[in-house]
Simulated scan of single mutants.
Amino acid sequence: MTRLFRHPLAHFFAIGTALLVAAEAAQPLVRALDTPTVRVSTQDREQLRRQWLSETGAMPSAEEMRALVRLHIDEAILFEEALRLGIAEQDTVVRDRLLKNMRFVHADQRLDDAALLRQAQALGMLERDPVVRRRLVQRMQHRLESQAMVDAPALAASATQLQPERTSALFHFEHVFFSSDLRADPMRDARQALSGVQRSQPAPTQGDGFLLGPTVAGMRADALGQHFGPGFASGIAAAPVGVWHGPIASSFGAHLVRVTSAATRPEAAPPTLRQVLLHARQAAEKEALRSGMERLRARYRIVDDGDALEMAMQP
């Protein structure tokens, strides 16, 4: 057995095993080093609070603060991704902004663009200039949104089946109100008042006051239901035009009515094919941005120096 342990193959096997164990133990550390990190400092949180206070006049609630931190994290991830993909070097807006800043700083020196851009990056202007940072975040958002998929032929086919334009009636009428709060039998009193006048003559005078007044102009059926109660609109629709009619029951009592006109007008037209496609594109871009951010968040390690990260990253 002693000779076995002294054999070169045994030494080779032992060394190989030790290296394998060490490599496996080092894997979590290697993965941690390879994972990009976004840190939310206590200073970041305080700046978010101050900005919210200046814009709204009130301190953010706990829920609002979580939303602010989540947005801050997302923007930091998008900014880091823009740098990783080299968007800062390709974007003319970013380039022009940096050159403008550096030429102001070095107004007395004759430096070429490449030298100025190198100095700008060395000074951290990519991170500190809010215009540059916002531009890079927007470029990454647009990059994710551009992955949206829209089935235009299917949408075009469905758009051809949209309902035709609909119309609704607008009722104009006078009414005399008989209150159920003031009368034992308002329907009986309304019938008696109607029998005492010719239907084409002026309104009966025995009624009570009504909140909307004695004349209603241009009210749709659904609005009649809201103001007078269910069933009143159908009673108005069945009434002849130009003569006193009723009584019609409402949620408040009884009404004698004289419809003066019942004109029709078009309701909101169904969406056009262009509107359908635009809405679908916007919805698809929103979904592409959401799913893209989920993938990016999974690649980053978030370090929150303030409140618990789990609270900030809850969906």
Rank of each mutant, 00 (worst) to 15 (best):
T2R: 14
A10N: 08
H11Q: 12
H11R: 13
A14R: 10
T17E: 09
L19A: 14
V21K: 02
V21G: 04
A22E: 04
E24C: 13
A25F: 14
P28T: 00
A32Q: 12
D34S: 10
P36A: 02
P36K: 03
Q43F: 15
Q47Y: 12
W52H: 15
E55H: 13
M59Y: 14
R66V: 10
L68N: 05
L68Y: 06
L68P: 04
R70C: 10
L71D: 10
H72A: 08
I77C: 09
L78T: 04
E80G: 09
E81Y: 00
L83E: 05
R84S: 15
G86H: 03
I87N: 07
D91T: 06
V93E: 15
V94L: 03
V94D: 05
L98P: 04
L98T: 05
K100M: 12
N101T: 08
R103P: 04
F104T: 11
F104Y: 10
V105A: 13
A107L: 00
A107K: 03
D112Q: 05
D113N: 12
A114W: 09
L117W: 00
L117F: 01
R118F: 02
L123W: 05
M125N: 07
M125Y: 13
R128A: 13
R128C: 01
R128N: 10
P130N: 08
P130C: 09
V132W: 03
V137F: 00
V137R: 00
M140Q: 15
H142N: 13
R143M: 14
E145P: 11
A148L: 09
V150Y: 02
A154F: 13
Q163N: 08
P164E: 00
T167D: 08
F173S: 07
E174V: 02
F177E: 03
S179E: 11
S180E: 15
P186E: 03
M187Y: 09
Q192M: 08
A193G: 10
L194D: 10
S195L: 12
Q198N: 08
Q198D: 12
R199L: 13
A203F: 09
T205I: 11
L212V: 10
G218E: 01
M219Y: 04
A223C: 03
A223T: 07
H227I: 05
G235S: 10
I236T: 07
A237Q: 10
A238R: 01
W244Q: 01
G246I: 02
I248W: 01
A254R: 02
R258T: 00
R258C: 02
A262C: 11
E267N: 08
E267S: 07
A268L: 15
A268N: 12
P271M: 12
P271F: 11
A288P: 07
A288F: 06
R290I: 00
S291L: 15
G292W: 07
E294K: 02
R299M: 09
R299T: 10
R299P: 04
D305R: 04
M313T: 11
M313K: 09
Q314G: 11
P315W: 07
